[in-house]
Amino acid sequence: MPETEKIAILPYRKVFQIAWQGLRIRLVKTFLVTSCITLALAFLTYILFSNGMVAGVAERASEALRQRLAREGILEQMLSAEQRTQTAWMLGIALMNSFVGIVNAMLISVTERFREIGTMKCLGGLDSFIVKLYLFESLCQGIVGTALGMVIGLVLAYAEGVSLFGREAWTLLPAASVLRILAASFFSGVGLTVLGALYPAWSAAHMEPVDAMRSEV
């Protein structure tokens, strides 16, 4: 066997391919995990945009709009401490829920694939390969779920914004803030998913092949 140059990228491509095919085949479960993330992220994105708009009213809204809002008491209600803590709580719970959901779904995915994992280890796969496989898988789900959630959150936030502030909703947030919010949402969504996959991936990788293959029969 000629020891030609080793291309480290190759196994990555394979890892990615296998992970991706796995996701496609287990479509229903993939959908469940992804929707967990989507829901939480829709909520997060919505809150961030909505808060941003409310904050923007003070500096950027026209005099007419501010007067109308003051008259209707909308702003006061939205800025009340009570309302804010309630939102923070709900947000925290949503994110935690989605995190638990991800960990849970990944653990199930690991149990379902004990035999596959054991086989890969028999074929000479290292623990790190198995970890990569699961992290790639969660990365895919994280990106898709997050992107979807962000779109939903964005649409909801602006729909509400338009109904409250009229056409001015579009100008309440400067482009830089919009980008900042999008980036924050994206990274927390993907980060959350990958973090949730870490323990399941680790536990899958550290199984002995015999244990992995026995437990499914």
Partner: peptide, 18 residues
């Protein structure tokens, strides 16, 4: 114990990539 999501070719290639 084939990898269910992979083709025959990929299954046979896997140990070589390892």
């Amino acid at each position: 114990n084939l990898i269910p999501v992979a083709t025959a070719l990929d299954n046979v290639m896997l140990p070589m990539l390892f």
